[in-house]
Simulated assay, not measured.
Amino acid sequence: MNTRFLRTFCTVADRGSLAAAARHLGLANASVAEQIRALEAELNTALVVRRGQGVALTDAGQAVLGAARQIVVQADHLRHLAQARRLTGRLRVGAISTALIAMMPAALRTLSQQHPDIEIKVVPGTSAGLLQMLETGEIDCALAVRPPFRLPKSLSWRLVRDEPLVMIAPSTTERQPIGAMLAGAPFIRMDRNAWTGQLVSRFLHDRRITVRELFELDAPETIVILVAEGVGVSLLPDWGITPPVGRDIHMVPIPDPKYARAVGVFGSRGPAATLIDVFASAVEETAGAS
C-alpha cells in the first residue's frame, strides 16, 4: 500500500477539502483526487464524499483513518531510523519574532556546520499560534514562550533560557523609581492576550501600578522603536534588546525572577524527535554563548 496516498488521505481528513489538502501538500487538486481514488480502488470502498465545497469521510473512511495515521507515523519513523547515523531529513521549525532575531541565526549556523544534511524550514509566528500548528502537525517543533498552562502529553519541552523583564524608557526620561516612571509616562503595552503580555499584566497588578495606556500591540520590536522615538515607556522581556541605530533607550531590569519569560523548544513526540533534540541543543548552545 502506498504510504504517500495514505498521507494524502490523512491530510484531506484534517483539511476538510481536496483543494485545502492540495495547497498544504504542494500538489495539484487533480493529483490529490487521483491519489484518493487509487486508495479507494485498493481498499475497494469509498473513503470520502463531497459535501458542499468540501468533503466528508464515509463510515469506511472514519474506520481506517486511525490506522492510516499510524502507518504514516511508522513510515516516517523508519525513514528517520535509516538516516539516524548521518542525521539527514527535513525539520519544520516555528519561532517567535524575538527568537528569530536573537537566537535563530547563530543556531542555524551551528546546525549547518555540524549537520549540513538536515534541511530546516523556518516558520514565524506567535507562541500561541505555533503551539496550535504543532498540535495540528504543520510544524515539528517551535522556539517559543512557555505557556501559562500545562502542555499536552504529546509535546515535549526543553528550556533554553529565561529572559528577565525590563522596563524601557526614552534615554531623555528623568530617572525615578520604576513605579513612578511607568505611571508617569504614556505606556506602550504588549498585547494582554499574548503570553508575554499576561506576564506584564501580572507584574503591574502585583505592584499595584496604574499606567496610562497609549498603544497595545503584539510586536515587541516595534515597541522598542516607539520607546526610542520618545513616544512612551514599556515593559518587555530582555531577549537582547537593542535600540534602533542612532537612538538610545534607558533600560532598568526587574530583579524578581518570577517575572522572567521562559523561552524554549516545544517538540512533537514522534519520528522527528532526534532532529528536534539536535536543533534544541544548537539553540541552547548558542543562546548560552550569547
Rank of each mutant, 00 (worst) to 15 (best):
V145H: 07
V145C: 03
V145S: 05
V145R: 04
R146D: 04
R146M: 10
R146E: 10
P147G: 00
P148W: 08
P148N: 13
P148E: 10
F149W: 12
R150T: 15
R150V: 15
R150K: 14
L151Q: 05
P152S: 07
S154Y: 03
S154K: 13
S154F: 04
S154D: 06
S154E: 10
L155T: 07
S156K: 01
S156L: 03
S156M: 07
S156Q: 07
W157T: 07
W157Q: 07
W157R: 05
R158A: 12
R158M: 10
R158C: 08
L159K: 12
L159D: 10
L159A: 11
L159Q: 14
V160Q: 12
V160L: 13
R161L: 11
R161C: 11
D162R: 14
D162N: 13
D162V: 05
E163N: 13
E163D: 10
P164E: 05
P164D: 02
P164C: 07
V166W: 02
V166Q: 00
V166S: 03
M167C: 13
A169Q: 02
P170Y: 08
P170I: 08
P170M: 09
S171N: 10
T172Y: 07
T172V: 09
T172H: 13
T173C: 13
T173R: 07
E174N: 10
E174V: 15
R175A: 15
R175L: 15
R175Y: 12
R175C: 09
R175G: 05
Q176R: 15
Q176D: 12
P177Y: 08
P177M: 08
I178Y: 02
G179K: 09
G179E: 14
G179T: 08
G179L: 03
G179F: 06
A180H: 11
A180S: 14
M181P: 02
L182D: 03
L182M: 07
L182G: 07
L182W: 01
A183S: 15
G184R: 04
G184H: 05
G184L: 09
G184T: 09
G184S: 05
A185K: 09
A185S: 12
A185P: 00
P186L: 04
F187P: 04
I188Q: 01
I188A: 03
I188W: 00
R189L: 12
M190I: 12
M190R: 14
M190L: 14
D191A: 15
D191T: 10
D191C: 09
R192P: 05
R192I: 08
N193E: 15
N193T: 15
N193H: 15
N193D: 14
N193L: 13
N193A: 14
A194K: 01
A194M: 06
W195V: 12
T196Y: 00
G197M: 06
G197H: 01
Q198V: 07
Q198S: 05
L199C: 11
V200Y: 03
V200A: 11
S201K: 04
S201P: 04
R202P: 06
R202V: 07
F203K: 04
F203W: 14
F203Q: 01
L204M: 01
L204F: 06
L204K: 06
L204Y: 02
H205A: 14
H205I: 08
D206G: 08
R207S: 10
R207L: 08
R208Y: 04
R208I: 02
R208D: 11
I209M: 03
I209T: 01
I209R: 06
I209N: 01
T210H: 09
T210V: 13
V211I: 11
V211W: 02
